[in-house]
């Protein structure tokens, strides 16, 4: 598959719980294989403890697998050092958290600008990028607002603007509507759909919510660290 953006083969992740004699191995992912293509919008579903978030973290390079192969855009990220991985994340991954995780002392614009500080862009260019990203999420008029002055839905939209501002290859969202009311959640899902549809962003979204999963083009189910189903939905059903 030449257009596979994420290629996962026999991926395993094992945690050790406790220490000494009480140490216990917890196999979170067991030989999982998966491919995500450019332009995909994948919903990862499964019960708690099925390994969804762990898989997302591994793809984002914020956790390391115990075994297996994980290639993103042809690069084996399991072989990168901590610093190389950080630089790779800066350019290739946009991450959206369930609890938004904005920096409270920074304004919306400054939060969005944060990943751009790692680039070589000048001040004016950074400002333009920030304005564009906030316009895409519909918050161009909230640039000077602090997170505490925004609603939950607006905070999540700022977080999405922060995730897309560097124009990454991959958008990873960990239950992006999990902490929002229905209307705000709907807005966020619509925004993600639009990013996928209009801007061609490849999105992997972990969710518990079947309604949220409906927005995705593809539904992947995990149970006990194993992939149990992988359904590509017909365009009409989305």
């Amino acid at each position: 598959m030449s257009d596979a953006l994420v290629q996962i083969r026999s991926l395993e992740k094992t945690y050790t719980r406790g220490s000494g004699r009480d140490a216990q191995a917890v196999h979170v992912l067991q030989g999982l294989s998966l491919q995500v293509h450019k332009g995909d919008f994948v919903a990862l579903m499964g019960p708690s403890g099925s390994g969804k978030t762990t898989l997302l973290n591994l793809i984002a390079g914020i956790d390391r697998p115990t075994a297996g192969e994980l290639m993103v855009d042809g690069l084996d990220i399991t072989r990168l050092s901590e610093s190389e991985l950080a630089r790779w994340r800066a350019s290739s991954v946009g991450f959206i958290f369930q609890l938004y995780n904005l920096i409270p002392v920074l304004t919306a614009a400054e939060n969005v600008e944060l990943p751009l500080l790692l680039t070589k862009l000048g001040k004016r260019e950074r400002r333009e990028h920030v304005q564009t990203a906030l316009s895409v999420v519909g918050l161009a008029d909230r640039m000077g607002h602090y997170p505490r002055q925004l609603s939950g839905g607006q905070e999540q939209r700022v977080a999405i603007a922060r995730a897309i501002v560097t124009d990454p290859l991959l958008l990873l969202a960990d239950e992006p509507t999990g902490d929002l009311d229905k209307a705000s959640g709907e807005e966020i899902l619509e925004l993600l759909s639009r990013l996928n549809r209009e801007f061609g962003k490849t999105i992997l979204m972990v969710t518990h919510d079947p309604h949220a999963a409906e927005r995705a083009k593809r539904l992947v189910r995990l149970e006990k660290g194993v992939l149990v189903s992988d359904d590509v939905k017909a365009p009409a059903s989305r």
Binding site: S83, R89, A90, P115, L118
Partner: peptide
């Protein structure tokens, strides 16, 4: 979160 955004531990 900053490290997720790409800040290295050194930075």
């Amino acid at each position: 979160v900053m490290k997720t955004l790409g800040f290295t531990p050194g930075k």
